[in-house]
């Protein structure tokens, strides 16, 4: 009935990239993009990073089944 594949077992490296991306979301805007006061700075960085994380969620939850 619940024979599922835990996502963190099937692709641990992919799951591990999420906290890494989140750390970058803390660090990069306050350092590299600190003086980039335009739409292509922190705004775009945070948006793209989040889209990547959502993509990882889509991939890793694909194998959930009852």
């Amino acid at each position: 009935m619940h024979q599922t594949h835990s996502p963190h077992r099937s692709a641990p490296w992919l799951l591990a990239t999420v906290p890494l991306i989140m750390v970058l979301m803390f660090v990069v805007p306050f350092t590299l993009l600190r003086n980039v006061d335009a739409w292509y700075g922190s705004l775009t960085f945070w948006a793209v990073a989040t889209m990547v994380v959502i993509g990882i969620n889509v991939v890793l939850s694909r194998r959930w089944e009852d």
């Binding site: 991306i21 989140m22 979301m25 805007p29 922190s42 705004l43 945070w46 990073a49 994380v53 969620n57």
Partner: peptide, 14 residues
């Protein structure tokens, strides 16, 4: 910064 704050929450939903 408000965007980064809220999007980090969203990533946390992982």
């Amino acid at each position: 910064g408000a965007l980064g704050f809220e999007l980090l929450y969203l990533c946390g939903v992982t």
